[in-house]
């Protein structure tokens, strides 16, 4: 028996919007720790890792570890039928081939049940090493989204270079080039607007902008985004979900031939 009740149903809606363009089908893993997912995009260039910890749910019952295969587009469609302020409950009986999404409006006078078929998905988890990254940048999530969107109008890839002073995003295309530098900030009164750089070593890596633009669908989940890079690893873009966990995107770099 699985029963997960989340007071902020809007959060689950945002989570699905943040994953559905990257991944078609994925297994959600439910354990006493929480509700999680790990999946790659079809070309195996990007990986998304989601964790919603059990403590973040108003009610969390998961009698045994279960893996439920879902089509993320269909799940997103069903969740779009929930109001942003609705309470969302996920329910599944042991061995059932479907999951029920129950939506309750804040005044509790409208209750909706949506039942979705589960799928058998053959997927293997990858071991993500616990790495110390050479450069970590924390910046406003909306600013990062804006930069990725702007640069993708000029070029297909972005060179991200981190130094002690700041982070530089550069691209080039048929019409010309673009460079955006975000300097490290030192203000303390508005931490959500800060650009913070923790650098062990300067890093410069190239990434495909279309994946970064897909990751920025998670922007409504967090005010800040953390970008971690090392020269020999995929980058990690993390959006922390307050009180619940995180959504992390791993992106393999472009490598010089």
């Amino acid at each position: 028996m699985l029963e997960l009740r989340l007071l902020q149903g809007g959060l689950l809606k945002k989570v699905l919007e943040a994953m559905k363009d990257l991944v078609n089908d994925a297994n959600f893993d439910c354990s006493p720790t929480g509700f999680s997912l790990q999946a790659m995009d079809s070309s195996h260039v990007a990986l998304v890792s989601l964790l919603l910890r059990s403590e973040g749910f108003e009610h969390y019952r998961c009698d045994r570890n279960v893996s439920m295969g879902m089509n993320l587009n269909n799940m997103a469609k069903m969740l779009r039928c929930a109001g942003n302020d609705d309470i969302v409950t996920l329910k599944a009986d042991d061995g059932s081939d479907c999951i029920t999404f129950m939506f309750e409006n804040p005044s509790q006078d409208k209750i909706a049940d949506f039942e979705m078929k589960l799928m058998d998905i053959d997927s293997e988890h990858l071991g993500i090493p616990d790495a110390e990254y050479q450069s970590i940048v924390r910046m406003p999530a909306a600013e990062f989204a804006r930069i990725c969107r702007d640069l993708s109008t000029i070029g297909d890839t972005v060179l991200i270079s981190v130094s002690k002073e700041g982070v530089q995003f550069s691209t080039r295309g048929d019409m010309g080039t673009a460079n955006i530098v975000c300097r490290r900030t030192t203000t303390v009164d508005k931490p959500e607007e800060d650009v913070i750089i923790e650098m062990e070593e300067p890093v410069s890596l190239t990434f495909a902008l279309r994946y970064l633009n897909s990751f920025t669908k998670a922007t409504p989940l967090a005010t800040q985004v953390t970008i971690s890079m090392s020269s020999d690893l995929p980058m990690v873009i993390e959006y922390r979900i307050e009180g619940m966990g995180y959504i992390r995107y791993y992106l393999a770099p472009k490598i010089d031939e």
């Binding site: 260039v45 293997e124 990858l126 495909a208 690893l233 995929p234 791993y250 010089d256």
Partner: peptide, 14 residues
């Protein structure tokens, strides 16, 4: 030119 690498080049099966 540059070539797109894949996640599986870096992360193995758990």
């Amino acid at each position: 030119g540059s070539k797109q690498s894949t996640i599986t080049k870096f992360f193995g099966k758990a």
